[in-house]
């Protein structure tokens, strides 16, 4: 009779300890002074939370995190959908295209971040490309456009461009993965809908607007929810590429939690309070998002 429990016990014990246990512990830690040099942990009540709400660094990090998500989510969703629509039209050679676009997403983020540190240097390939294009144009056209010289920003060293640069790196990593998900969603749409649309004389745009997109709704919901959760937790690129700078312009919530908890050792209580506020914020956002875009049964 207790056999089933023996089957689920290892998984439940591990998840219970490392997932629920850690969340509970995090809550407890956030209510205490947590200094590894001091053996006892003084109860501080809500002090850490009150401090976190007023901390300008936390506010900056929250705004930067939202900024990252606001740029990255639409960028990745739109470009991976566009790619999927185009790649889906190709019959011969689709496999190789999928493979090529997918490659960045299996490469470790650390490696990708390191490559892009160099790609984004002032004299790097990202800035070189427009320079080369400009070099090919005839002088008359350059004078007409009023731009004979292009220097380009020093992406990661400038507080205005550092975050967009990190978004670009993240997008490059993610696009292929979401393209594959969109392709799967596209493949599930029954063909009759397209045949009906064609008989009604729909053009390509109408077909996309009134057939593809509405029927792709569940996939879009899944992609958006996953992207938002992932974007709000961005960390690796920031750690490797900018370390939160310049002038805190890329400091995000995950990097603040990491720094407070581990770099300035002994502030684990405060870091946990920030983490819990972040968790509650994320939870509300996800619940609202799921409610707004609840998945529906679209066809049988």
């Amino acid at each position: 009779m207790f056999k089933p429990y023996a089957f689920v016990l290892p998984a439940l014990a591990l998840l219970g300890l490392f997932s629920f246990g850690s969340m509970a512990l995090s809550l407890w830690v956030s209510l205490h002074q947590w200094d590894p040099l001091m053996p006892e942990h003084r109860y501080t009540g809500m002090a850490h939370y009150e401090r976190a709400v007023r901390d300008p660094l936390v506010r900056t990090a929250l705004l930067n995190t939202l900024y990252y998500a606001a740029l990255a989510v639409p960028l990745v969703a739109a470009s991976s959908l566009a790619l999927a629509l185009l790649v889906g039209k190709v019959r011969r050679g689709q496999g190789i295209l999928k493979t090529l676009f997918f490659l960045p997403s299996i490469t470790p983020m650390v490696v990708i971040a390191l490559i892009w540190v160099w790609m984004l240097r002032q004299d790097g390939p990202v800035n070189q490309t427009p320079r080369i294009v400009l070099g090919c144009l005839p002088q008359a056209l350059k004078d007409f456009l009023g731009c004979s010289h292009f220097s380009g920003p020093n992406w990661l060293m400038d507080s205005r461009t550092a975050m967009p640069a990190i978004v670009l790196t993240g997008a490059w990593h993610a696009v292929g993965y979401y393209m594959v998900i969109f392709l799967a969603g596209l493949g599930d749409i029954p063909r009759e809908f397209y045949e009906a649309a064609r008989i009604d004389g729909a053009n390509a745009w109408q077909e996309l607007r009134f057939v593809t997109l509405p029927l792709l709704r569940n996939t879009v919901v899944f992609v958006l929810v996953t992207l938002v959760i992932g974007a709000l937790q961005v960390f690796t690129q920031v750690y490797v590429m900018t370390g939160g700078g310049p002038e805190q312009s890329t400091e995000v919530l995950a990097s603040v939690i990491f720094k407070k908890g581990f770099a300035h050792f002994g502030k684990m209580g405060y870091a946990s309070a920030i983490a819990w506020l972040f968790f509650l914020f994320l939870l509300c956002l996800v619940l609202v998002q799921m409610r707004l875009m609840r998945s529906r049964r679209l066809y049988d």
């Binding site: 300890l17 997932s19 939690i257 990491f258 908890g261």
Partner: peptide, 21 residues
Amino acid sequence: GLVLATMLLPASVQLIPLFLI
């Protein structure tokens, strides 16, 4: 249901308690 709920717990929040455990 509890197992599925763990998917909602963000890794960056669990980092410190996981380290302590």
